[in-house]
């Protein structure tokens, strides 16, 4: 049901309904252009649509952070199923069971850190939409997708460290963290590698890739 029951979604629906009523009334009854009609058209063509546009943008921004949005493309179905599986032990699934991360699990982990993280992540998401609808991914089978598609760049460890601070004792008390500090900082070793905390999604790498 999309985001109709969120505050932004509800505001979009209400303001759009009011504006549409005004516009339909004008189209059907064609009243003379009196100051009252001008004012009504100002509400129907500028004020209410402006509120609807702002609210629908807000609603869209919220919606695009939800895992069900990412999972609405068939190539992401298995990722979403694994995320929602309470028995799964994958890194992504375990993280999504946190009540803080869960509602926006894909976005929280995949959004880049920093001031431009939010808009850059949204732009990357737009590229995914482009590749899916115009780049041919829509017709790919899930098997082909799992076998051939990999992340565009290595997953940055800074994204993990948005929550898992590298300065706390709980992090520094782990020998491997200290001995690999430079490699972790330079992203030469991934937190989500098979020998460390495990791959995030169980099918994001083949057995051959994992054994390397």
């Amino acid at each position: 049901m999309g985001s109709a029951f969120t505050p932004f979604g509800a505001l979009t629906l209400v303001t759009a309904a009011i504006a549409a009523t005004i516009l339909l009334h004008h189209l059907l009854f064609r009243p003379k252009l009196t100051p009252g009609v001008r004012m009504r058209l100002l509400l129907g063509l500028a004020v209410f649509p402006f509120v609807a546009a702002v609210a629908s943008t807000g609603s869209g921004m919220v919606r695009t952070t939800e895992p069900t949005f990412c999972g609405s493309c068939h190539v992401m179905e298995t990722h979403l199923q694994d995320l929602q599986d309470p028995k799964s032990t994958s890194l992504a699934s375990r993280h999504s069971r946190s009540h803080i991360i869960g509602p926006t699990a894909c976005y929280t982990c995949h959004a880049d850190y920093g001031m431009l993280g939010y808009p850059l992540t949204k732009l990357t998401g737009m590229m995914h939409v482009y590749h899916y609808y115009l780049g041919g991914f829509r017709s790919w089978s899930l098997e082909k997708f799992h076998a051939e598609i990999r992340t565009a760049k290595p997953y940055p460890n800074q994204n993990c460290q948005q929550c898992h601070s590298g300065t706390l004792a709980s992090f520094l008390n782990v020998k491997e963290h200290v001995s690999l500090a430079d490699e972790l900082a330079q992203n030469k070793v991934s937190c989500a590698s098979a020998g460390c905390h495990g791959v995030a999604h169980p099918f994001s790498k083949t057995k051959e890739e994992l054994s390397r």
Binding site: M1, G2, S3, A4, G9, T12, L13, S56, S59, G60, R63, T68, F69, S72, C73, V129, Y132, Y133
Partner: peptide, 8 residues
């Protein structure tokens, strides 16, 4: 966009 909530 609000009702369907899918990418396009």
């Amino acid at each position: 966009g609000v009702l369907l909530g899918t990418p396009l």
